[in-house]
Design a protein around this nucleic acid. Structure first.
Length: 578
DNA sequence: GCCGTTTTCGGCCCGACTGTTTTCAGTCG
């Protein structure tokens, strides 16, 4: 086996993004800049490691947006960890200018002006110059811009992305409030939120109204609004107290579908669809699909897709990651829906760190529309959670059997979330684990192991005969903790070979697997399981978040084990536990 | 710098809003 390169896909993508930024500041050909950004997105969204593809001798130019030049640069980065072209750029443009480019209101032109005219290279120098009033000596920089820059620097020092679960609540409130405004017809949250993204940078809302000016006035006066950033006749932007930016756009009903498509994005998807329209002699913008001056579609999204020769593409797929090609080929997935889930195989009780008892959790699951759950409390090594030893687990097994005898409409499977110890052994012996219907393995310690050790640890645990499913495979906590270093590509490959399930954990901060690896697992034929990891009766509601994530990973009902009826699931478990 | 069922060259998405202008460049999505 060839030596594994330490250069990750994310590192390659970061280099391409940086090159795009610096080229932009240099005023390079904008299409060349875009080529680097396209390539970065391709690399970032790749399920498999470039290092492996290269080692297998795969032709990298077969990847979208990777041509001969960029394929060579990828090879160079994999070999050396950097690119000579980037080093050359650094000689002309300081890397620190990137931070300036990320400030809202500053684009490549202004960053270039700041650098050339005032020698400003970083946020500190920029802030000093702005406060000293020196920016206003530059063409195109007035007092307002200076003030904005000072504010933007402050905001940039505390960057925020918002959990999907939190934005859901905000979106609901705004949509309800705007629907109550007289003359308003449709109101819907679009943007990355509608695409099911796990975190959201800002919330886009689209509306149709008889008087859009009035709608905008009401919008900026709504209670959660802290600051009004801008307000025009058809568009307004506000900030909430927590820093979330909310944009509202209004269009006529005849444009609603085109605008919804446009503001749902992603940008890359929109560009690709617009090119299709061009190819048919049509013009596509947020107001509709036009042949010359005449609007030929736009009232509904379906009409827009139809006009460019495509079937409807679900919002979660719109990332230009192959959905357009799949649509052309009639091979779009039929995405899983929340209603397809009939069970939940990862549930805790107050025997460990849950907040409700067995029966209470079972009844809550039934109310959430589930027909079975697996109780999977922690094992003894996780002492902070009061993990179970063999004898407490025995008592829980007895309790579950008694409860199953009298509960109707919900069945409880016996399981455990067992600690995967640092050496890859499990926290309880096989003779104990064999009493259970399923065994979930999880990493809750030793996050800092180097990549090969972490990977070997998890692979070893999966090789235990009673191992059913790997929980929250990357260990990340959104906004708090990065994934541990692990080769998920190999983990998924091993799951396929071993017949293990891989979990998509639906906790708002976990949503672990990511969409990219969901898609890889699906492509490899590895069974996924969408679990709530519920610690309270309210947590079953989180299953919807997991389903949204799965949909972004092109996951269909048949890819997910807990869409199966209990009898079928039991058969599947019997083969994995054999 | 990528891409090609018209093309290996000549294309590459497009409109709203802001601030600084005095008719529009820059930025954003």
């Amino acid at each position: 086996m060839p030596a594994r390169s330490k250069v990750s896909n994310d590192a390659v993508a970061a280099i391409f993004e940086e090159m795009a930024d610096l080229l932009e500041i240099e005023d390079a050909n904008p299409f060349r800049v875009r080529a680097y950004r396209n390539a970065a997105r391709t690399v970032h969204g790749l399920g498999r490691e470039l290092a492996e593809l290269a080692a297998e001798g795969r032709d990298l130019t077969s990847l979208p947006f990777i041509g001969r030049d960029l394929a060579a640069k990828i090879e160079e980065i994999l070999r050396s960890g950097s690119a000579a072209a980037l080093d050359k750029l650094h000689q002309r443009v300081p890397a620190s200018l990137e931070a300036l480019l990320r400030l809202p209101g500053l684009g490549p032109k202004r960053v270039q002006t700041l650098y050339r005219r005032l020698g400003i290279e970083n946020l500190d120098q920029l802030e000093k110059a702005a406060r000293a009033g020196r920016l206003q000596t530059l063409p195109g920089f007035g007092p307002r811009t200076s003030q904005r820059i000072v504010e933007a620097i402050a905001a940039a020092r505390a960057p925020r992305r918002f959990l999907r679960v939190d934005v859901e609540a905000v979106a609901r409130d705004f949509v309800d409030a705007l629907r109550a405004v007289p003359g308003v017809r449709q109101v819907v949250a679009a943007g990355s939120f509608r695409r099911g993204a796990e975190t959201v940078g800002d919330l886009d809302i689209l509306a149709t109204a008889s008087d859009s000016g009035k709608l905008m006035r009401r919008f900026v006066e709504l209670e959660p609004v802290e600051t009004v950033v801008s307000r025009g006749a058809t568009r307004a932007t506000v900030l909430l107290a927590n820093g979330l930016q909310v944009d509202l756009r209004a269009v006529e009903p005849a444009s609603y579908g085109a605008a919804l498509h446009y503001f749902t994005g992603s940008k890359a998807h929109n560009i690709a669809v617009r090119r299709l329209a061009q190819g048919r002699g049509l013009k596509l913008n947020e107001y509709g699909v036009f042949r010359g001056e005449r609007r030929v579609a736009g009232r509904s999204e379906a009409s827009v897709f139809r006009a460019v020769g495509l079937p409807f593409i679900e919002p979660e797929l719109r990332e230009n990651r192959g959905e357009i090609e799949a649509a052309h080929a009639g091979e779009l997935p039929r995405l899983i829906e929340r209603g397809d889930l009939v069970g939940d195989l990862h549930v805790h009780t107050d025997a460990t760190d849950g907040r409700a008892g067995l029966e209470e959790m079972a009844r809550a699951a039934r109310r959430a529309g589930l027909r079975y759950i697996a109780i999977t409390d922690h094992s003894k090594r996780l002492s902070v959670a009061n993990g179970l030893d063999a004898s407490r687990l025995d008592r829980q097994i007895d309790e579950i059997e008694r409860l199953n005898a009298r509960l109707r409409g919900i069945h409880i499977l016996k399981g455990i979330e067992v600690e995967i110890l640092s050496d890859g052994s499990l926290d309880l012996p096989d003779r104990v684990l064999r009493k259970l219907d399923l065994v979930i393995g999880a990493v809750h310690s030793g996050f800092g192991l180097p990549r090969d050790k972490q990977t070997a640890r998890i692979l070893r645990a999966m090789d235990r005969p009673c191992f059913t499913m790997l929980a929250h495979p990357s260990g990340r906590l959104l906004g708090e903790r990065d994934a541990y270093e692990v080769d998920l590509d190999r983990v998924i490959d091993n799951a396929r070979a071993r017949g293990c399930f891989v979990e998509l954990n639906s906790q708002p901060k976990r949503l672990d697997l990511s969409d990219t690896f969901c898609r890889l697992a699906r492509d490899e034929g590895v069974p996924l399981c969408i679990n709530s990891d519920a610690h309270s009766t309210a947590d079953f509601a989180n299953l919807g978040l997991g389903v949204a994530q799965a949909r972004r990973g092109w996951v269909e009902r048949s890819d997910v084990v807990n869409t199966r009826a209990l009898s079928l699931l039991r058969k599947l478990l019997a083969t994995t536990m054999a």
